[in-house]
Measured scan of single mutants.
Amino acid sequence: AELMTLTIVKGAQGFGFTIADSPTGQRVKQILDIQGCPGLCEGDLIVEINQQNVQNLSHTEVVDILKDCPIGSETSLIIHRG
């Protein structure tokens, strides 16, 4: 298992991935745009978004944080894999 830092840019259609609740937090459910989120894999656990720890937040709260990220700006994700 490892922590990885990824930088992704939000496009007009969003980030290009969906998230779902899991017992340990929000996991990447589906990658819709592989080019839009390079390095991200289905099943990755989202630990931080732009230096904000999201592991204890609800699904709705994490979705809102992602929605609030401006289109075209870089967003830093720390994910836990494995």
Rank of each mutant, 00 (worst) to 15 (best):
V28F: 01
I65C: 09
Q26N: 05
Q52T: 11
I19V: 13
L32E: 11
Q55A: 08
I31N: 03
Q51C: 08
G11C: 04
I34Y: 13
C37F: 15
K29H: 15
N53K: 11
Q51N: 14
E61A: 04
F15N: 04
K10L: 02
Q30H: 09
V63W: 11
E48D: 01
I49K: 00
V54D: 00
V62A: 08
L32K: 02
V9S: 06
K10A: 06
K29R: 10
T24F: 09
C41V: 14
G14W: 03
H80N: 15
V47N: 02
V63A: 12
D33P: 04
N56H: 15
L57P: 01
N53D: 11
G11W: 03
V62D: 00
V9H: 03
C37P: 01
R27P: 01
D21A: 05
I79Y: 06
V28E: 00
V54T: 10
Q51H: 12
I46N: 00
R27H: 07
V9G: 08
L66T: 01
K10N: 06
G14V: 06
T75L: 10
K10Y: 02
N56P: 15
P23W: 11
G82S: 07
N56M: 09
L77I: 15
G39P: 07
Q52W: 07
H59N: 12
V47C: 08
V62I: 15
D33F: 07
R81D: 01
Q55W: 05
D68M: 14
G16N: 13
L32C: 03
I19E: 00
T75R: 06
T60W: 08
T75M: 14
K10F: 01
I65K: 08
V28G: 01
F17I: 09
H59I: 05
T24D: 10
T24E: 13
L6M: 09
I78N: 12
E48P: 00
E74Q: 08
K10P: 04
M4P: 08
T7C: 11
F15Q: 09
Q30F: 15
G36T: 14
I49C: 07
S58F: 02
V28C: 08
P38K: 12
I31T: 07
R81A: 07
T24K: 13
I34T: 08
F17C: 02
I49M: 03
G25D: 00
C41I: 14
S76Y: 15
G11V: 14
E74G: 04
Q52S: 10
V63F: 01
C69E: 07
G82V: 03
T60V: 13
D64V: 09
Q13A: 10
I71V: 13
I78Q: 03
L45N: 01
I34F: 08
T7K: 12
E42L: 11
G11K: 07
Q35D: 15
L77V: 11
S73N: 02
P70G: 03
I65E: 04
G25E: 05
S58V: 07
G36A: 02
V47E: 13
Q52V: 10
I78F: 10
E48K: 06
G82L: 04
E48G: 08
E48Q: 07
G72I: 15
L66S: 01
F17S: 00
L3Q: 13
V54R: 00
G82W: 03
L32M: 14
T5C: 05
I78P: 00
G25Y: 04
L77K: 00
L40A: 06
T60D: 05
D21H: 08
V54W: 00
L40M: 02
M4H: 11
I65R: 08
L32V: 14
Q26F: 03
I19N: 01
T18R: 11
E48L: 06
V47Q: 14
E48R: 06
R27Q: 14
I8E: 01
S22G: 14
L40S: 01
L6R: 05
G36W: 15
Q55L: 06
H80G: 12
N56K: 10
P23T: 09
D64C: 02
I79M: 12
K67F: 09
V28D: 01
G72E: 11
L32R: 08
Q35R: 13
I31A: 06
